[in-house]
C-alpha cells in the first residue's frame, strides 16, 4: 500500500521493541545463571540450560499455583459472565420504575477507583471469616460487574424484540427467555466478558497479597512475587528460577490470547477495557 522504506523501518523497529523483551525473557530463562545478562541480543540460549524449569518446579509449588490460578480464574470469569448477563437482561428487556436510576448506578461505578473500597471490602471478608481463603478473589463477581453489564445490555438491546415476544406467546417464562434465548444470542459478548475477566483474574496481584497467607493457596502472580522476593536479590540470587517462573506465569495467558484474539480486540475496541 505504501512505498516508503522509512515507514516499514519504523514499523519493524516498533515490532522489535514490543516482541524482543519476550524473546530475551525466554532465552535468558534457558541459560545458566552466570550467563543471564550476557549477549542480550543473541536470540537463542547459549549455553542451553533448560534445567531451571525443573529447578523452579522443585523450589516452589508451581503446579499448585498454576491449578489455583486456573480455578480462581474460571470461578471469577464464569460467575461474572453469568451474573452480568442476568442483570443485563433485566435492563435490556424490562421497563420498570427506577430502571434509569439503577442503570445510572451501573455507569457511575465504572469510574469508581478500586482503592477506595479496599479497606471496607477487606473488613467484610474478615467478618465473614473468609480471609486466608481464595473466596474473596472471585466471590464479589456473583453480583455482576459494571463494564460487563453495560456491554451485555448494549448487545441484548440489539436483539429484535419480536424474538422474545414470539417465545412469550409460546408460553416461555422470563427465565426461559434469559436462558434459552438471550444467553445463546449473546454468545460473542459473553465470550468477551469471560476472556477479559479471566485475564483480569490472572493479572491480579493485590487481592492475593491481601487475602492469602498460605503459599499452598497462592496464584501464579502472588507466587512469582514470592519467588522474586526470595531469589532476585540478597545473599544467593537465583535469577534463572525467577525468569523461568515469569515465563510459566505469562505463557498460558498468551495461549489464551491467541485462541480468543478476536474477542480481546473487539472487547478493547468496544468497551475500552484494559
Amino acid at each position: 500500500m505504501t512505498r516508503r522504506p522509512f515507514f516499514w523501518l519504523m514499523l519493524a523497529a516498533a515490532s522489535v521493541i514490543f516482541l524482543y523483551p519476550f524473546v530475551w525473557l525466554v532465552v535468558a530463562s534457558l541459560k545458566p545463571r552466570s550467563y543471564t545478562f550476557s549477549d542480550p541480543f543473541v536470540p537463542w540460549p547459549d549455553p542451553f540450560a533448560p534445567e531451571s524449569y525443573a529447578a523452579v518446579w522443585e523450589a516452589a509449588p508451581m503446579l499448585a499455583w498454576l491449578v489455583n490460578t486456573v480455578l480462581v480464574g474460571l470461578a471469577a470469569a464464569v460467575t461474572v459472565t453469568l451474573s452480568s448477563a442476568f442483570v443485563a437482561f433485566g435492563f435490556a428487556y424490562f421497563r420498570f420504575p427506577g430502571r434509569n436510576v439503577i442503570f445510572a448506578s451501573v455507569l457511575g461505578t465504572m469510574m469508581l477507583p478500586a482503592a477506595v473500597t479496599l479497606v471496607p471490602t477487606y473488613l467484610i471478608w474478615h467478618a465473614a471469616g473468609l480471609t486466608g481463603t481464595q473466596v474473596p478473589l472471585w466471590a464479589g463477581n456473583l453480583f455482576g460487574s459494571a463494564f460487563y453489564i453495560f456491554l451485555l445490555r448494549q448487545f441484548l438491546l440489539g436483539v429484535p424484540r419480536y424474538v422474545f415476544e414470539a417465545a412469550r406467546v409460546d408460553g416461555a417464562s422470563y427465565l426461559d427467555l434469559f436462558w434459552r434465548i438471550a444467553l445463546p444470542l449473546a454468545k460473542p459478548a459473553l465470550i468477551i466478558a469471560f476472556v477479559f475477566e479471566l485475564k483480569a483474574s490472572w493479572f491480579d496481584l493485590m487481592k492475593p497479597l491481601i487475602y492469602l497467607q498460605d503459599p499452598a493457596l497462592f496464584t501464579l502472580p502472588r507466587g512469582l512475587k514470592a519467588i522474586v522476593d526470595q531469589f532476585y536479590q540478597g545473599g544467593d540470587p537465583k535469577w534463572e528460577l525467577v525468569l523461568a517462573a515469569s515465563v510459566i506465569t505469562t505463557l498460558p495467558l498468551i495461549v489464551v490470547f491467541f485462541a480468543g484474539q478476536r474477542y480481546f480486540v473487539q472487547g478493547v475496541a468496544t468497551t475500552g477495557h484494559r
Partner: peptide, 19 residues
Amino acid sequence: IFYLPSMTPYVAVGVLFLF
C-alpha cells in the same frame, strides 16, 4: 504484536524490567 505486552501479567512485567 503491539498488544502482546498487554497480555503479560503486571508482576511478570515488573520482574522482566528489573532485569
